[in-house]
Amino acid sequence: MLKTIMQLWHRYQSVLSYLIFGGLTTVVNFVVFWLFNDLIGWPVWLSNAIAWFLSVLFAYVTNKLWVFDSKTPTVKAVVAEASSFFGFRLLSFFVDEAIMVIGVTVLHGNNLLVKFLDQVIIVVMNWFFSKLFIFKDRAHKN
């Protein structure tokens, strides 16, 4: 049984790690959004922007180190990789902001329910961005 579990982990390590750390990134995003929007009372767009930045920072570190095991031997390579990561996350940020503003402000949905649905869409988008474009050298080895 343990051998089977280890074989499955090895085979799907990238996907499983991404789901684990993607889940933790979503928790970071959710908690920061809730703190700034519900507790402090800041607007949805600003709370969401702060939550986005902090969760993307968390996601970059965890994706680099534990999901895609990215090795960047030079500062230039790290800057290029981080720029790509944040650039693609910026694309998903605009989708994130649109879903939140339309879902909460226009459609008057519950902010945390809309945030949950929003994060499901964003996690899937970001997986494809990371797998196909950002950490592609490591991702193609799996």
Rank of each mutant, 00 (worst) to 15 (best):
I50C: 10
L91G: 15
P73Q: 11
T26G: 15
A98R: 11
A51L: 02
L46W: 04
Y60K: 05
V44R: 04
N29E: 07
F58P: 08
L54Q: 01
I40V: 15
S47M: 03
F36E: 04
R89H: 15
S84G: 11
N29P: 00
E97Q: 15
S55T: 06
T62Y: 09
N63R: 05
D38A: 14
L65G: 12
V31D: 08
V61F: 13
A59K: 04
R89L: 07
F33H: 04
F53C: 10
I50G: 06
V61E: 10
V67P: 06
S55Q: 07
P43V: 04
L65K: 15
F68M: 01
T25L: 01
A82Y: 09
G23K: 07
L39N: 11
P43F: 07
F30C: 04
W66C: 11
G87N: 14
A49K: 01
Y60R: 06
V67S: 07
S47T: 02
L39G: 07
G41A: 07
S83H: 03
G23M: 03
L91N: 12
S92P: 11
K71D: 06
N48C: 02
F58W: 15
A59S: 15
L57M: 11
S83M: 06
N37L: 01
L54P: 00
W66S: 11
F33T: 04
V32K: 02
F86H: 07
G23V: 06
P73A: 13
V44N: 04
I40M: 10
V27S: 09
D38F: 14
V79M: 11
T62F: 10
E81P: 00
L90Y: 15
W45F: 13
S92K: 10
A49R: 00
G23E: 05
S83W: 00
D38T: 14
D38M: 13
N48Q: 05
F94W: 13
I40A: 12
V56S: 14
V56P: 01
E97C: 05
K71P: 00
G23R: 03
L91D: 08
V78I: 11
F30D: 09
E97D: 12
W52L: 03
F93A: 08
K64G: 00
F88T: 08
T72A: 07
A82R: 04
A98V: 15
P73K: 13
A80E: 00
A59Q: 02
V67I: 10
A51Y: 02
S55M: 08
V61H: 11
G87L: 12
S84F: 00
L54T: 14
V78R: 12
G23Y: 02
W42H: 09
E81G: 00
A82T: 06
F88C: 09
